[in-house]
Design a protein around this nucleic acid. Structure first.
Lengths: 348, 348
DNA sequence: CTCTCTACATTAAACGTTTTACCATATTAT
DNA sequence: ATAATATGGTAAAACGTTTAATGTAGAGAG
């Protein structure tokens, strides 16, 4: 194992000072073209690679950002491809600015985020936490630039990027109503309704649903809330409850994977989609185009979400924080085959 | 922004030398219980956090490993949830040993892996590259501990972890044959068959398919190879070709997502599964249980794959390399609903 | 010829650790 | 008592950079 070659080796070999080599490497200061070439040559010959940890020590910047996703533990959240896309967006955005990302799953209960300080990360991106969560306090306590994705935190001092969940949900619900559905079940997640305000994303989507109902003059019926996890298995079980709800002809599921579960459950019960039930999802995963029937769903640009978060974070790090602290991306609706006319078609 | 507190602040405040503080922090050297407590107390009061980059500079270890996945570029590979699971396994394994992972997508054409040297990463995990790829040469040229996942590199000096793809493929094919299928199409990927030996994973699976054929005395028919990408879209298009192949009653697809595409394509053509066609996938994604009909597929423990790679890498880093350079994990077969009896049932 | 610029280049301190070699003091063995 | 050995602690160098302050030489101006 050959000895590492450092900046002083280069300096000696090139017959200049280490400061000059440093300047050449970083393109700073004044140095003549002749010297630049000489130093570059030596760098190539010796195969010198700058030692970033050493640089970090001096500059107090690591060009490293942490990305924290909620319990990436096997079995928990890995079952939603959504996060992979988001990560791809973040990674790409970071790479474009020659930052690297340190990825870590967290166990909300135990995570102290100490690694952020220890490793002197320049910033942190936190995905999908909630108002009042331990994580939020701990992160803000760090005093490190941070951006929260999909978290809907009340503290308006925090940088956040969200989807316009309420609007998206409103559009989906309105569409079902237009199609003639009046009793629309909601697969909302495994949460106590009295605390829904704490579940940012779910809350917003729930509000959007209610907006649409209200606009159409349809009374809100709490019995239509199906409180099961928005996972494949949750969706599958939700079908059981769905078929017991009288007069319900549609279900809006707060994630595509759970909608797939619903589809599967309904098919096993020999309920036709969209004949007997219309189903609508949320996320527009790449897969959703290939289910049978293909899934009508609320769409979002996940990659762009990642990009936006990185941009916001890097601006903070560079000391030129964006004036807007909250970016809200638009939600779309893509109509495919799981939705069809309901019983009240001419009700408008 | 309060000044960072360093080891010397702690030392001064506690009235000991910095060497002693260092020893307390790292649990090394000899230091009396009384001093330990005193120092610990001061550390808490001052809120001291060790500076890892500084430590790295001195120790030449970063406790950081790089994870490289093939072009995590939007649109490319993100469309296979497989990688997310793998990443979860790696991350978890690393975290257990208090390593962190730096994740980066690569563009095989341009990536030089210079970040590995610059950041002084302790090791590297590379996923899904191929024999003869630029990436392999560059990584080995780095002289850094590395483990290749799903790469089937001939150079037996390299550490690798693979699935027993050949065996898995053999089992799947044999199962179809047992069920009475004799002409079995293969959705093999968008590659030139004359170069198949370079595509490690695909090659092995192809060999497994041929093993099973040979054992059953069924001649290999190259016309049954469908050369389309093993993606959702590829699978969907594969259905077009499938229905044109005379007497074919089954298709074996080299990924679950592409099998889902096939399912969708067949349904649109009003071909029944498993009535007219049996379909079998590869990977056993969590979703595969929820397709309609649910997918028969070759299963693997992806999380364990990640764990194994980390273990292998960390042993190298610790200077106690495993004697076996290649770990091969077993493949299973999970039979669900997309496979059924074929026309030659009593052929055995 | 001296003075002031300008353009390059260097010196040396600092960043926050770890670690080797060494020094006390207390304990035990002789 | 003396020598040998533990035990607890320290001084100082080193890791590879960046950067502020400073130096030097040559060119043009007076």
């Amino acid at each position: 194992m050959k000895q590492e070659v450092s900046i002083v080796d280069v300096a000696r070999e090139a017959g200049v000072s280490i400061a000059t080599v440093s300047n050449v490497v970083n393109g700073k200061g004044r140095v003549s073209t002749k010297t630049i070439q000489k130093v570059r040559k030596v760098i190539d010959e010796l195969g010198y690679t700058p030692n970033l940890p050493a640089r970090n020590l001096k500059t107090k910047r690591t060009d490293l950002i942490g990305v924290v996703v909620p319990t990436m533990k096997p079995g928990r959240l890995q079952d939603n491809p959504f996060y992979w896309d988001l990560l791809a967006g973040v990674e790409e955005g970071a790479r474009d600015r020659s930052f690297h990302i340190i990825l870590t799953g967290i166990d909300e209960a135990t995570e102290t985020f100490s690694f952020v300080k220890e490793r002197r990360l320049d910033g942190l991106i936190v995905v999908g936490t909630n108002e009042g969560s331990q994580a939020v306090q701990r992160v803000t306590g760090l005093g490190v630039p941070a951006v929260f994705i999909d978290s809907y935190l009340k503290d308006s001092g925090l940088y956040q990027v969200n989807l316009d969940d309420r609007q998206g949900s409103y559009r989906a619900t309105s569409y079902l109503i237009e199609q003639g559905h009046r009793r629309i079940a909601l697969l909302i997640g495994d949460i106590p309704m009295e605390r829904i305000a704490y579940y940012g994303v779910l809350h917003e989507r729930w509000l959007g649903y209610r907006d649409a109902l209200e606009e159409a003059g349809i009374p809100y019926d709490p019995r239509l809330m199906i409180k099961l996890p928005t996972s494949l298995a949750g969706g599958y079980k939700a079908a059981d409850q769905l078929v017991e709800l009288p007069d319900v002809t549609a279900i809006f599921s707060f994630s595509d994977v759970s909608a797939m579960g619903v589809l599967k459950g309904l098919k096993e019960k020999n309920k036709s989609v969209p004949g007997e039930y219309s189903v609508i999802g949320f996320d527009n995963l790449f897969m959703s185009e290939y289910t049978s029937p293909s899934l009508t769903t609320v769409s979002q640009n996940i990659i762009e979400k990642g990009h936006a978060a990185v941009r916001m974070l890097l601006n903070q790090i560079d000391g030129e924080p964006l004036s807007e602290r909250r970016i809200v991306l638009p939600a779309g609706l893509v109509v495919r085959e799981t939705t069809g006319p309901g019983p009240h078609q001419s009700s408008e």
